[in-house]
Amino acid sequence: MFINISFAPVETAFREFVRSYGFIFDAIKHVLLQGFLVPLENLLRSAPPWLVLLVVGLIAFHATRRWLPSLAFVLCLYLVGCFGLWDKLMSTTALMLVSTAMCVVIGIPIGILVARSNGLRAVTLPILDVMQTMPSFVYLIPMIFLWGVGQVSAIFAIVVYALPPLIRLTDLGIRQVDREVVEAATSFGTTPLQLLLNVQLPLARPSIMAGINQTVMMALAMVVLATLIGARGLGETVNQGIANLEIGTGLQGGVAIVLLAIVIDRITQAYGMDARQRRRLLYRGGGLPSLVRRAKPGEEA
Rank of each mutant, 00 (worst) to 15 (best):
residue 171 D to G: 03
residue 86 W to V: 06
residue 13 A to T: 06
residue 57 G to H: 01
residue 294 R to K: 14
residue 286 G to N: 09
residue 46 S to T: 07
residue 225 L to E: 07
residue 239 N to E: 14
residue 98 V to H: 04
residue 111 G to C: 02
residue 278 R to D: 14
residue 183 E to C: 11
residue 279 R to S: 13
residue 67 W to A: 12
residue 54 L to F: 03
residue 260 L to T: 05
residue 95 L to K: 06
residue 242 I to M: 14
residue 169 L to R: 01
residue 259 L to S: 13
residue 92 T to H: 06
residue 276 R to S: 15
residue 292 V to Q: 12
residue 6 S to V: 06
residue 218 M to W: 00
residue 66 R to Y: 02
residue 125 L to F: 00
residue 278 R to C: 13
residue 296 K to V: 11
residue 259 L to Y: 08
residue 293 R to E: 15
residue 261 A to R: 12
residue 22 G to D: 09
residue 293 R to V: 12
residue 262 I to D: 13
residue 88 K to A: 07
residue 243 A to N: 12
residue 207 S to E: 05
residue 116 R to A: 11
residue 185 A to H: 06
residue 248 G to P: 11
residue 56 V to T: 06
residue 206 P to K: 07
residue 179 R to W: 05
residue 197 L to S: 09
residue 79 L to E: 04
residue 283 Y to V: 10
residue 65 R to W: 01
residue 232 R to H: 10
residue 150 G to E: 06
residue 121 R to Q: 05
residue 180 E to N: 14
residue 104 V to G: 07
residue 265 D to E: 14
residue 60 A to H: 02
residue 295 A to I: 08
residue 239 N to Q: 15
residue 7 F to L: 15
residue 90 M to P: 01
residue 297 P to D: 14
residue 58 L to I: 07
residue 283 Y to I: 10
residue 190 T to R: 13
residue 53 L to Y: 01
residue 271 Y to I: 13
residue 194 Q to T: 13
residue 68 L to D: 11
residue 153 S to A: 15
residue 216 V to Q: 08
residue 243 A to M: 10
residue 272 G to T: 10
residue 89 L to S: 03
residue 47 A to F: 02
residue 227 T to G: 11
residue 234 L to I: 04
residue 26 D to I: 05
residue 193 L to Y: 11
residue 222 M to C: 05
residue 182 V to R: 13
residue 115 A to N: 04
residue 294 R to A: 12
residue 189 G to P: 06
residue 160 V to Y: 00
residue 250 G to Y: 14
residue 88 K to P: 03
residue 83 F to H: 11
residue 190 T to C: 12
residue 137 F to V: 15
residue 91 S to Q: 13
residue 54 L to Q: 07
residue 26 D to W: 07
residue 102 M to R: 04
residue 283 Y to C: 13
residue 118 N to P: 03
residue 256 A to T: 07
residue 60 A to L: 04
residue 173 G to A: 11
residue 74 V to S: 01
